[in-house]
């Protein structure tokens, strides 16, 4: 079965992808400047609401999975299930990592960013050793 057999509303999908991408970036930019608006997990959930439809559009229409035979759908979906089962156990390490001090995690100590200027000077998340270099490049 080929794409020739089915009509794809190409420009409608393009518009949807454009709107969803713009919404993602606007949401992130607004939240990053006004983090009091909502907790981070709420922002992440909102982002997923914009990202997942984009992924579904590409998978179902552009990759034509919606119109494929069951075997192809199975071939496409099986890795997602297998990967979910495989990755699920290591997700518990999130709790393990949070229970320890970051500096005590074996093997990570030497990669910890310098914390000398992270004590309340507003540069907690900068990678740079020079606080004046914290502006994003353009």
């Amino acid at each position: 079965m080929s794409q020739k057999d089915h009509h794809i509303p190409l420009w409608g999908l393009f518009l949807a992808l454009l709107v969803l991408t713009t919404a993602e970036v606007v949401l992130f930019e607004v939240w990053s400047r006004n983090q009091w608006l909502m907790p981070k997990y709420a922002m992440v959930l909102l982002l997923l609401l914009f990202t997942l439809p984009k992924a579904v559009i590409v998978l179902t229409y552009f990759m034509h999975l919606k119109f494929e035979r069951q075997l192809i759908v199975f071939l496409a979906m099986a890795p997602f299930v297998m990967v979910f089962v495989a990755v699920l156990p290591i997700l518990t390490d999130i709790v393990t990592l949070k229970d320890q001090s970051y500096n005590q995690v074996p093997g990570l100590r030497e990669f910890v960013p310098s914390t000398e200027h992270s004590q309340g000077d507003g540069h907690e998340d900068s990678l740079s050793q020079d606080p004046s270099d914290d502006e994003p490049y353009h």
Partner: peptide, 24 residues
């Protein structure tokens, strides 16, 4: 999966904020 574990396993403030580090 590895990124998610490392990213969300860190205490607050120990991970670079994207808008300060990357050109979003």
């Amino acid at each position: 999966g590895a990124y998610i574990v490392l990213r969300f396993g860190q205490p607050a403030g120990n991970w670079p904020q994207p808008h300060l580090t990357l050109n979003v």
